[in-house]
């Protein structure tokens, strides 16, 4: 299937040359950012929507889930090379894959079609410092977007659980057509931290107000709640957190990703959830979310 000839204009809002940007960000560890980013990216890719997952977190979670651990990345370029301006997107992005064998040969992995991953590295922990050292590096993401020529539909950005110079350099390139998607667990702590994200986004908008060179309007368009209560999972905290999220952010809530113990297996198996357990409850829910967002199956 080839959609590159005629890219759906909804993936190139206002006639721009780069795809939609979905930023999975919230300053809350273990809030299912990587799980949601990879699951949504894989679901879309398997439905025929090409995309790129940017792993910007030094813990390398989404790199691992998409087939690249530190051993596999030896000698390969990473997101840090992008940030330093020492490589292009096409040089760094690797075909997403999952493990089917034991070793590190090509036939120990199966490629996930339509999906690429910009792998992270432990050195990404120093990304903020790298930008602080050289103000020009603040434009690293802007330069990637401006020189982009491919046919991807979405850039899925998996952030570390912090707001710093690196997240800022990316967030300021988001417009209202793009989405900041805090993916949080149905947990009172996670829900509480959304307010801080809203403040941070407001700060980014404020700093870039009136600036023409960058869009500077990151918007919290969607809130993703994972691990929500089910008929068998009835924890009070999860129920109350879900109620709180509904009350505060009802207008942007995506369909829920219900709780499942299966969702905890993807890191151990180094495989994205929709491929690892396609019939598990969360996999079904991620497909519902993608359908909700207009990513109907093009291969059907």
């Amino acid at each position: 299937m080839n959609i590159s000839a005629t890219i759906d204009p909804r993936f190139r809002p206002r006639g721009r040359n780069w795809p939609l940007i979905w930023a999975y960000i919230i300053e809350c560890g273990g809030s299912t950012k990587s799980t949601s980013a990879t699951s949504m990216a894989v679901t879309a890719a398997l439905r025929g929507y090409p995309g790129v997952v940017f792993d910007l977190d030094s813990n390398m979670s989404s790199s691992l889930v998409l087939g690249y651990d530190e051993t596999a990345l030896k000698g390969k370029k990473t997101a840090l090379d992008l940030l330093y301006g020492e490589a292009t997107l096409d040089e760094v992005a690797l075909p997403a894959r999952f493990r089917v064998g034991d070793g590190y040969d090509d036939d120990d992995f199966a490629v996930i079609p339509n999906l690429r991953v910009v792998p992270s590295s432990p050195a990404m922990a120093g990304a903020d410092t790298a930008i602080a050292e050289d103000a020009d590096r603040n434009d690293w993401f802007a330069e990637i977007l401006r020189s982009y020529q491919g046919d991807d539909t979405v850039f899925y950005l998996d952030f570390p659980a912090s707001y710093g110079k690196m997240p800022y350099s990316v967030l300021r390139m988001l417009d209202e057509d793009d989405s900041v998607i805090p993916s949080i667990k149905a947990d009172p702590k996670d829900v509480k931290l959304v307010a801080r994200l809203v403040d941070e986004l407001e700060r980014v908008r404020d700093k870039n107000r009136g600036r023409r060179s960058v869009p500077g309007r990151p918007t919290l368009n969607h809130l993703m709640l994972t691990g929500t209560p089910t008929s068998t999972y009835k924890e009070a905290a999860a129920r109350r957190a879900t109620e709180a999220a509904e009350a505060k952010y009802g207008s942007v809530l995506l369909p829920y990703i219900r709780y499942s113990a299966d969702a905890k297996k993807l890191y151990e198996d180094e495989c994205p959830l929709p491929i690892l357990l396609p019939n598990s409850v969360p996999s079904v829910d991620y497909r519902k979310v993608m359908t909700h967002l207009g990513f109907v199956d093009l291969t059907a």
Binding site: R47, R99, G101, D108, D269, P278
Partner: peptide
Amino acid sequence: MAGTLPRPKRKST
């Protein structure tokens, strides 16, 4: 869709 892909090698099992 995912049916056409090979089976993942699992460790969690």
